[in-house]
């Protein structure tokens, strides 16, 4: 501790206490996330009124299960995007892990070993992305675009494009059907990931450096932080999360397919950005990602219950994405227009 900081122990002077005083809840809250929470609530209420089955325990539980993989990977993707990086390979890693885990089970591996192998494969691909990005200085966009192709290609090559069934009696398959307090194992694991994400991003040095790197990487490097290791860890986390999602998807569906999770990376990135995490880096919110993932899931689920053509779902989701981000970016402008119209100051 420095000579200056040593004096900070004990009870601080009033002026010092005033400087250090915590801001109000409103000042601390990410306004983009708040807008998203309001939109999600509105969409939720709309579907609850428009359909008979939306607000039932069974459907909400089903919704949580559907949202879980995107939320799990979204939490990790929040770190990647906050650090000013991107990971386009998560969908391919999900497919690779799900297909390979199914193949290992068919080959007679014990479920516990397959779980570990699935996690290791996800982490491994994430670290490959991280190493090329952080240590070889190839932009993450290029690296993960390449692994997007390579990883799914490997899965297709080994399975020849066929879906690999998983025996329902294995512990691996039982994970997919396990439930507790009305929610599936996927939903609980996703919730645990969200809590882990909040703690890591906002309460640890790792999270602090992720935000700092996204804001000004050189400044963090000059502060003596190993920024390359932090960037590699963020992409490694993303790969690990994709591995978890791959395991859960294979376990739930009872099969592993190299064709699964097509376009999954875009769903995840949309959820993260919808929640208020800046694509430019330096700002991230796990709660926002949770809201973003739930909103995209609610739209898909609600439209299905309304018997709307499934082809309309991506159109509506995309439109909501653009409108919400536009409102967030132009919020101040809209606010001043409203103030002028109402004559308020």
């Amino acid at each position: 501790m420095t000579a200056t900081t040593a004096r900070a122990t004990g009870s601080p002077a009033p002026a010092v206490a005033r400087l250090a005083q915590q801001r109000t809840w409103w000042e601390r809250t990410n306004k983009a996330t708040l807008v998203m929470a309001a939109v999600t609530l509105l969409v939720f209420v709309f579907f609850a009124l428009a359909t008979d089955n939306f607000l039932t325990l069974g459907n909400v539980s089903n919704l949580a299960t559907q949202v879980a993989p995107a939320l799990i990977v979204g939490v990790a993707m929040t770190f990647v995007i906050t650090a000013g990086q991107i990971d386009l390979s998560v969908g391919s890693i999900v497919a690779f892990v799900s297909a390979t885990c199914a193949q290992l089970l068919v080959a007679g591996w014990d479920s516990s070993l397959v779980f570990l192998a699935g996690l290791a494969m996800g982490l491994g691909w994430g670290l490959v992305n991280g190493w090329f990005t952080a240590y070889q200085r190839i932009p993450a966009f290029i690296v993960t675009l390449a692994t997007l192709s390579v990883v799914r290609g490997l899965a297709l090559f080994t399975t020849e494009g066929f879906s690999v069934p998983i025996e329902s009696w294995t512990a691996f398959a039982r994970l997919g059907t396990a439930r507790w307090l009305g929610l599936s194992s996927s939903a609980w694991i996703a919730l645990a990931f969200a809590v882990l994400g909040v703690v890591l991003l906002h309460h640890t040095r790792f999270g602090q450096y992720v935000i700092g790197i996204g804001s000004a990487e050189e400044s963090v490097r000059r502060a003596g932080v190993n920024v390359r290791l932090v960037k590699m860890a963020a992409l490694g986390f993303s790969g690990l999360a994709a591995g978890v999602a791959g395991i859960l998807i294979a376990a739930r569906l009872g099969s592993g397919s190299a064709n699964s999770a097509q376009g999954f990376e875009l769903t995840v990135i949309a959820a993260v950005v919808l929640g208020g995490t800046s694509l430019l880096g330096g700002r991230g919110t796990i709660v926002g990602t949770l809201i973003g993932a739930v909103l995209t899931g609610v739209i898909a689920n609600g439209l299905t219950l309304m018997s709307v053509s499934p082809y309309l779902t991506p159109i509506i989701t995309g439109t909501v994405l653009v409108v919400v981000i536009w409102v967030n970016l132009r919020g101040a402008d809209l606010g001043s227009v409203l103030r002028k119209l109402t004559g308020a100051r």
């Binding site: 200056t4 900081t5 004096r7 900070a8 601080p12 010092v16 206490a17 005033r18 400087l19 250090a20 915590q22 703690v199 309460h203 640890t204 040095r205 602090q208 700092g212 400044s219 963090v220 502060a223 003596g224 932080v225």
Partner: peptide, 23 residues
Amino acid sequence: LGREPRRGPFIDRRRMHEQAAQI
């Protein structure tokens, strides 16, 4: 930045802000 006070594995934000205010 780079030397955040910690309580276990977590950043001790309260202490960090108090020390920052003192500096």
